[in-house]
Design a protein around this nucleic acid. Structure first.
Lengths: 187, 187
DNA sequence: GGCATTGTAGACAGATCTGTCTACACGGGC
DNA sequence: GCCCGTGTAGACAGATCTGTCTACAATGCC
């Protein structure tokens, strides 16, 4: 059986490493974060680290996988919490963009940082966005255009994600997103 | 999108450095590109480099400034070339996304890479996006909603920009963008 | 008991990165 | 003649980064 990190009393070394890497990679960037830093902050020995992740690239792949699982679970929960209909989309996204630790989309950021040296990151990001689009499709009313509509909304969300990353507050981006989604739904 | 190539007989050392840095930073990323590489490929001495750019951060700022000038000039020209009206927007963007050297938006990428260690990059990106929005406003028909409409279109373009960065081809992103812009304009 | 697994502590190698420094060359303006 | 701005060539320092290696301890399974 593999990694489950569900509130264990003492999380395994692997889980501690992965969680620390997630926090640092997401906050400071993958390239800006050295393996030494992850090792020091997760309180693990260097050999232990390299036994679980033979190279930094392995850790990066595990980070993106972990992030995907975690984020999708949160997103689906947030959509449900806001009613589970089309009107849940913008508030759910808003919740994320307003989070104090918000630093953009981990996948978009990673593609920008790594696509040159780790081509597989592009397909990982693609798969992530496909999953997001599927989650959005699920809250839209059935119609012939449902899939295309979900794609348009998902792409607009990506626009809001990057805007909120360098604007002082996410409010403008959210207003614009709301307007776009409204316009798209009124068809 | 092509370079300006002002065909100077012998470009100054500073220009050679800046152009080399632009190409490498945009293609491989800012953090992944060492100063040594820029020096080697621009065929300049190390001391010359450091006389013009006392630190790498100075070079990064100059790169973003250069990129902004160059990209805006190209974008406005492309809009004009496609008719200068609202219908010019998607074809102009399409031209860019289809370029073989396309690697996303230099500003979005830089924010992801550097915002942690160089906070001013966020405001540089913000200013760039404001200029793009202004350029879009200029091709929209006069109306009370013109500015807000331009914001919505600009944000959707950002969505298409990041999608085209990791999808195999930019076609899907462009189709979706077309659909969104159409929906927004029909109001 | 015997032994594999998983863990800790930390030295070390080799590459790479930013930035400094010395020594020298050339041309134009005073 | 003389200085000064701009250029070249490349050694060097100091930090940091990835990855390897030795030596040792606790635990659980057969």
């Amino acid at each position: 059986m593999t990694s489950d990190s569900q509130t264990t009393d003492t999380p395994s070394a692997r889980d501690r490493i992965l969680r620390t890497a997630h926090d640092l990679f997401y906050r400071d960037g993958v390239r800006a974060t050295g393996v030494d830093r992850v090792i020091a902050e997760s309180g693990v020995a260097k050999l232990t680290f390299y036994r679980h992740f033979p190279s930094k690239n392995d850790l990066i792949r595990a980070y993106l996988d972990y992030r995907h699982q975690r984020w999708m679970r949160w997103f689906e929960e947030a959509l449900a919490r806001h009613g589970g209909g089309p009107d849940a989309i913008v508030p759910a996204v808003g919740e994320w963009l307003r989070d104090p630790g918000y630093r953009g989309c981990a996948f978009i950021n990673s593609v920008g940082e790594l696509a040159g040296s780790m081509p597989e990151v592009a397909s990982i990001a693609q798969a992530h966005k496909a999953a997001v689009t599927t989650a959005i499709t699920a809250v839209l009313p059935a119609s012939r255009q449902r899939a295309k509509l979900a794609q348009a909304i998902a792409l607009s969300i990506d626009g809001a994600i990057v805007r909120a990353q360098f604007d002082a507050t996410p409010d403008a981006a959210l207003d614009v997103l709301k307007r776009i989604v409204k316009s798209l739904l009124r068809e």
